[in-house]
Amino acid sequence: MAMPPARLVVLLVQSTLHGHFSSGIIIFIMVKYVLLRKVKRMKLTREDVLNVALLSRLEIRDDEIENVTRQFNDIMQHVDRLNQVNTENVRPTAHALPVCNVLRPDVRQTSLPREKAMANAPLAEDGFFRVPKIVEG
């Protein structure tokens, strides 16, 4: 539905005044719209944002969270415009060009010498990368 809700309601009310719709139908349409709206425009809470941050392995400080959540919702509001587009029976495009079956022969190539492979390592020991102790996230 491409129309902003306020305008839609006004239109519907006007239509009712002009006798175009029965009141049963208008209530049905309005309820349906409100339900749809609820699904579409669910605002992200700070908990939602913190959960996404954990999945992303990013920290958000307490003094940042409000601002981040607000910006997030602002952007998502723009993104929600996608719901105005009817995509029924439309196939998704994951690749810009219809290329398929790109394969390489099973042939070995020279690997990197270890000193080059590890030259950028923040911490290395005995030819291994070293990391802090493993805990489950």
């Binding site: 992303s56 392995r57 950028n120």
Partner: peptide, 22 residues
């Protein structure tokens, strides 16, 4: 922060990941 690039301080791997990326 594991095999190249900046690494932040962290006592365990998850803390290190978060510090590094943040």
């Amino acid at each position: 922060g594991v095999s190249y690039g900046y690494r932040g301080e962290g006592d365990d791997i998850v803390a290190m990941y978060k510090r590094t990326r943040t």
